[in-house]
């Protein structure tokens, strides 16, 4: 599957800004970059729904709204069910002649808490039923809205307020849940992993997700300066390092067939280009405790996990 749509940054700049400035995301907010990029991928009328989370809060502090498209938030764990309801209503209203548009896209946004954890049931149900919508997971790897608590998406040994870097337990003992693999296993037509550093890749994937008939799942890494403890200017740099170190490889699965996306494909073809995971970890305060004699061995352990997952992915992509 490929999208016909080709674009330049100028084309994007000339498309309307569907997320208005004046929203109250923190300076350097990764999710806000992800949202802006994704909303540049729209192909026509669209309705958005959002799970509870940072981006729900910062874009709609009453009486203000940053949304130039119809938008609804209802609760934390149910955004996929919102999308299901909207999509179904549109379908039947169109059939009954109550709708002026030929087609309206439906997009659901949720953070990692709303996806890996509390929203997984509704998401699984909605994609199993085959609703036609794009689900965007903006993964900032912890419950940032409530103050940086660990989620199923938090990586191994990251320090959060509920998995602090203690003297005995150095951050989150568990590993990041392979959420996108879980979505592929649902047999849905489109799943992709993207990083806002590779904007063209991310926007193209969002567009494919909208174009495909049936459920699409886009896993977008969304660095958070507050939660990851780095300088606000480094959001894109870190989003790029995640890909360069294979911590967050870019890929897509169309009807279950995996393929690597260009930035990761380059590394697969030229493994010497893969940067050590240390490069990714070192600028983030949430991993600072790993750079001590006591816990430094964990960096190797993380490198090992990253390698293992990368190899599995290469196998799926037929590049092992």
């Amino acid at each position: 599957m490929s999208s016909e749509w080709k674009f330049t940054t100028k084309d994007l700049a000339e498309k309307p800004e569907l997320l208005m400035p004046g929203h109250r995301a923190c300076a350097g907010c990764g999710p806000a970059v992800v949202y802006r990029q994704i909303l540049k991928a729209t192909r026509g009328p669209i309705i958005a729904t959002n799970a509870t989370g940072c981006m729900e809060v910062v874009t709609t502090i009453y009486p203000y709204t940053a949304w130039r498209i119809p938008w609804i938030h209802t609760a934390f764990e149910n955004v996929a069910a919102n999308a299901a309801g909207i999509e179904t209503a549109l379908k039947v209203m169109k059939r009954k002649g109550h709708l002026k548009h030929d087609h309206i896209d439906v997009i659901a946004f949720a953070g990692d808490g709303g996806t890996y954890d509390i929203g997984l049931q509704a998401l699984s149900g909605a994609v199993e039923r085959g609703h036609d919508f794009l689900y965007v997971l903006y993964d900032n790897e912890a419950y940032m809205n409530t103050g940086i608590q660990r989620s199923g998406g938090t990586p191994h040994c990251a320090s959060t307020t509920t998995s602090p870097a203690g003297r005995v337990i150095p951050g989150k003992p568990e590993y990041k849940k392979p959420i996108a693999d879980i979505m592929v296993a649902h047999g849905i037509p489109y799943v992709a992993a993207a990083s806002p550093a590779y904007w063209r890749d991310l926007i193209t994937k969002a567009r494919k997700g909208l174009e495909v008939k049936g459920p699409a799942f886009l896993h977008a890494l969304a660095p958070c300066p507050r939660g990851w403890r780095y300088d606000t200017s480094k959001t894109i740099e870190i989003a790029r390092l995640a890909v360069e170190t294979c911590v967050f490889p870019l890929w897509e699965a169309v009807d279950g067939e995996h393929s690597l996306s260009a930035p990761s494909k380059v590394i697969a073809l030229k493994p010497e280009r893969k940067k050590p995971v240390r490069e990714y970890l070192k600028n983030q305060g949430r991993f600072r405790h790993l750079f001590t004699p006591e816990f430094e061995h964990i960096i190797d352990e993380i490198e090992h996990i990253v390698d293992r997952r990368w190899k599995l992915l290469l196998k799926k992509c037929g590049m092992a």
Binding site: P45, I46, I47, E56, V57, T60, I61, Y62, P63, Y64, T65, W67, R68, I69, P70, W71, I72, H73, T74, I86, K100, H101, I104
Partner: peptide, 12 residues
């Protein structure tokens, strides 16, 4: 929820 006349529902 209508793309012709966008409204925001369920804010903070």
């Amino acid at each position: 929820l209508d793309p012709k006349n966008p409204v925001t529902m369920g804010p903070l």
